[in-house]
Write a protein that binds this DNA or RNA. Sequence first.
RNA 1: GCCGGAGUGGCGGAAUUGGCAGACGCACCGGACUCAAAAUCCGGCGGGUGGCGACACUCGUGGGGGUUCAAGUCCCCCCUCCGGCACCA
Length: 806
Amino acid sequence: MAAEYNFSEIETRWQRKWEQEQPFAASDDPALEKFYVLIEFPYPSGEGLHVGHPRSYTALDVVARKRRMEGYNVLFPIGWDAFGLPTENFAIKTGKHPRVVTESNINRFRKQLKRLGFSFDWSREINTTDPEYYRWTQWIFLKLWKHGLAYKTEMPVNWCESCKVGLANEEVVGGVCERCGGNVVRKSRSQWMLRITRYAERLLDDLKTVDFLEKIKIQQTNWIGRSTGAEIDFPIQSRPDRSMRVFTTRPDTLFGVTYMVLAPEHPLVEELLPRSSNPGEIEEYREAAAHKSDFERTEVAKEITGVEMKGVYARNPATGEQIPIWVADYVLISYGTGAIMAVPGHDERDWRFARKYGLPIVEVISGGNIEEAAFTEIDQGILVNSGPLNGLTPDVAIQRMTDIVESEGYGKKSVQYRLRDWVFSRQRYWGEPIPMVDCPSCGWVPVPEDELPLKLPQVEQYRTTESGESPLALLTEWVNTTCPKCGEPATRETDTMPQWAGSSWYFLRYADPHNDQALAARDKLEYWTPVDWYNGGMEHTTLHLLYSRFWHKFLFDIGVVPTSEPYLRRTSHGLILGENGEKMSKSRGNVVNPDVMVGKYGADAFRLYEVFMGPFDQPIPWSTQGLIGMSRFLQRVWDLQEKVSWEAPGSAETSRIVHQTIKQVGERIESLKFNTAVAALMTLANYFSSLEEIPREDWMIFLRLMSPFTPHVAEELWARLGHADQVSLQSWPAFDPALAAEDEVEIPIQINGKLRAKFRAAADLEDDEIRSRAHDEVAGHLEGRQVRKVIVVRRGDRNLVNFVVS
RNA sequence: GCCGGAGUGGCGGAAUUGGCAGACGCACCGGACUCAAAAUCCGGCGGGUGGCGACACUCGUGGGGGUUCAAGUCCCCCCUCCGGCACCA
């Protein structure tokens, strides 16, 4: 009689062995074929591990373990994305240093992860808050600066009026402060920016070269938001030396322009103000627009407003017509040229605006009813009232007009991106200090590379100052320094980097985590990168993925990394919801604690449930009952070892099912269908339990297939067969199609598409034979009816006969 | 508003991409074991009609229409839910 299935004893024992022997450490041997599996490294929050974390980790652990068994040298690393707001907020509340808080959070996370038996290479653990790590984050920043990709400019920040704190965008929820619910306004501040827009085109085009889930590519594409069109100059009548440049995607509608609009922040407004007859009114409007928060600006979206610059006119370069100029905040300074030509007949917003202020609406494309609504279709209608464009379709007219403006010299083809430059400053304590010095005579001067890391100094308080500066600004002796260039007194930058900084390159550090000469040695990067398979949450598809691709492309350009894309394949997992189907949160009281679950049912059952619960990429509600089902399954598997026999002869049937399972499990892991991979294993186990004896060879195959999912129990059962080595270090079972093939198949018979009967036949039976056997089987149904056609389908194990009768 | 995803038993979900709808698991029901319960094992489990019965017929994948010998899967229209973006010219 075998011993009880004591999962906790078994799991602790194997985990201890792995801890001592480090069997999953990746070796830097270039002779081996490598495979780099990456999960998003966690933020070590004070709440500890969430049941959502292990969903992705287990899935990729399955992949990593399978690849190892397939003979690859697998790198499956782990680390900590440890800078960030919750820790800082906790520090503000308790006065504990964020470093101390971070350390204890990490210790807890590490312990929790180890308890789940992931095959991480713990020797490569990294931590973004470690000065030896952020030294290189700062180094990359200096390189960006040197190449003109970092600059400082006035930018609005989110400012909570009641907390007196600058907020990150993520902390502004519905226009109010996430923590106190106070009103958030925009304050202008000088901020560090990164020119990600310079990479917009490559970030977009290179998506074609990588294997990301289609929806991820679509989200990135939308986020980058490429628009092609033309820039056109409209001369200002009273200022012949000035013109107003607009961007439009519809140059074909140039003859329909009835007014122009400048964004309130547009510099031309200032210039033209004295020429207008109503400067006061315009000033007032600008003031009001400036004081609107983002929230108000979008809230008021339905109500479109503006003010005319009376007495100032532009001239339509195509028609020579005089057109009025308006200032309106539905035009954004940050997109295009900050100015538009308004075509109310064929743009929905312009139409609403024209209606409201009684501006003329001219039809230049027939096909709609511009009295009712703007006609915006691009694949319908014919150009009218448009001189040389008359009679063309809009798509042709767009090309024609672009050529005209170019040849006439008042415009040019133009591509605009919705992507904005990356606001890289945070007025926060718990982040990487930006290694720059402000010198009165030299301007911004980088801290010399050999002085990195520029360590985060000790402070008394962690809160952003009343004036909205980082807490570092209060450290006079730290702020006051000398200029690295001229040696004169200068001041340090006190802003820190956003949390996105450390995570934009961490996967490179894993290749060579202890290097103190470079972020990683070139040969190690050449060996390990790019990442072969990266999985993470959909919430990171836009920002993190884009930022890290941007940094990687930059590092490629300056010769630091060998490839221009960091990740070959990117997949994503769905959220785990509470049992009630709502998002898990403390306030909803539906949080499931992984420690409790692992304690009660074991890590193997927990892992198995994490991947079995449903389709990997979809949100799924948690079900503790479902987890209990997994623990029952493992108990049954444990009991099966009783039946394993050296003598059992093995049968064709058993081999067939075993080999079908090898195929299914393998394929389903590769295509992220972990839930059905587990189902196939269960089917095999159910089959085993119907046998009197299980042939030892077949059982060994089963254990190898199980081991990526439930490594502890698989090792234990493997060891109990008398093996001294580990099952996770065995090779992945080879699939033999000949053994998997059925020699007899069941053939369903349909009459007019309706199932009427089935029969069993040899798999190699001739079609004619099948037809006549099938005919006999359903003779009763066919009596008195005329068979018009017989369809026989023979496709692998998909067989079918259909009689079409009348 | 725009972009994406989804809608299948009481529940989570399968269905090799046009070929037997409901794999696998949960819940539930019945039986065995037990003094009893739990655990475990065996059996059942979409709806309807007929039959004591193995079974037969019939309806059934959000709704409506279509293509096809054959539709959960393809096409058109509509409804609902989830995620992302949102005055982007």
